[in-house]
Amino acid sequence: MPTYELTMLLRVMPKTDIVSTLKRTANTIFSTGGIIRKIDSLGFKKMPFKTSAHSLVHREANYFIIYFDAPPSRIFDLDEAFGRDVDVVRRRIYKQDSEPPEACTLADEIKPPPYRSEVQKMLEMAKKAKKPQFSYNTGLDYYPFQK
């Protein structure tokens, strides 16, 4: 089962209700045969903009991230179930990055452009793509007459 990240904004409510909502969410995940890896609370924060959800206007929310594993075929059902929950203002499920982080190339990136390897590669490509041009064989790098 791949790991997913559920970012969830819960509406303003007492702690007991938050706990019960989180538990409800967790049980929904467990019902699909999934497990939870971690629960992160990002605290109670102002939302970037006011949001209407389930016939109520929200300006603040409790932010949570739940890292969970679940069968990919049930993700749609999970998302739908969370969408039906009246205590959830916003939610979105992302697939966690399983790729290992790339090696740091900052030292190469902060060089001036002509010294960067990728720029040199591009120059090489441009040189290769250049079409052969007619040569006047005058020994000059410009055309001496009016064209």
């Binding site: 303003v12 409510m13 007492p14 702690k15 938050i18 609370s41 990002l42 605290g43 109670f44 924060k45 409790n62 932010y63």
Partner: peptide
């Protein structure tokens, strides 16, 4: 800083 969820 984020506020704790308590005391809401």
């Amino acid at each position: 800083q984020p506020q704790a969820n308590e005391g809401q």
